[in-house]
Design a protein around this nucleic acid. Structure first.
Lengths: 136, 136
DNA sequence: GTACAGCCTGTAGCGACTACAGACTCAACA
DNA sequence: TGTTGAGTCTGTAGTCGCTACAGGCTGTAC
């Protein structure tokens, strides 16, 4: 490590909870800037990179797509850090999340009811299989 | 079409609501048996295939993986069609669905709160971007 | 005969990773 | 100084469940 305050990808991974392979992947697709390199070719990171990657991780935890994260990062890089843009992205994403919730809740209801109707094993004509359809 | 009661992939797709490409995909991965062929090489289907594919579609609608669907199909093909096996598959899947629900609900809560805290556009220091983290 | 829809195969792309293989580097210890 | 073992590198391929072509054949209607 030639410079002070610089650390390798393993440390960044530890620090952020993001998989090493995933960090390299993010760099490859241009979500993260290309890291500086040591003489031997090791990627070198600094505190700022930790902050950036934590930002990415939190956004991912909220379910934002990598494309959204890319845009959010760009917005956060602007001086003003105003709500402009960011709010629209979040609102659109919130819509999707709510739509998925509706679907999942429906699945949950049907599955729970079907499982409940199921016997202990020996019962013929399983209601679960029946609900999926007769195979002729 | 050499035989009566046989129809081509387009009709099967219409009948079941499953995309043509998806049907071919299911056949390729062995989820559906290889279809009979006309002299010219067209796939030929019958009523039984409609039932089978509807079964698959319903299971997919409930969020079962293709691997689960494969197992459920095998269970449904057995004479007894007992609950044995099927119930375990469904219960495991229900667990996953519930876990996803927990995650999604959490996302929804955080997102909704953050969006609500967001201003109309000109406000600096957007709380949404702030909640994701400061970039140094 | 000539459109045109429908079907065929094979391949590649999506999103967001994950998992190697095979080679190099670095730090610690004997 | 040599050696071990952990860490890192690149490049490629696999995952899941489709979807979208390209380029060619077939079937039907006019």
């Amino acid at each position: 490590m030639p410079t002070k305050d610089a650390f390798a990808i393993g440390a960044l991974s530890e620090e952020t909870g993001v998989n090493i392979e995933t960090i390299r992947y993010y760099e490859r697709i241009g979500l993260l800037r290309k890291a500086a390199r040591s003489a031997a070719g090791y990627r070198l990171y600094r505190a700022g990179d930790v902050a950036r990657l934590c930002f990415v991780r939190r956004a991912r935890d909220l379910g934002f797509s990598l494309e959204d994260v890319r845009r959010l990062l760009a917005l956060a890089d602007r001086e003003s850090r105003s709500c402009e843009g960011a709010k629209e992205i979040a609102e659109a994403h919130l819509e999707e999340v709510r739509a998925k919730l509706v679907d999942l809740r429906q699945m949950e209801r049907v599955l729970a009811a079907t499982v409940k109707a199921c016997g202990r094993g020996a019962v013929p004509d399983c209601p679960l299989l029946g609900s999926l359809g007769r195979l002729t």
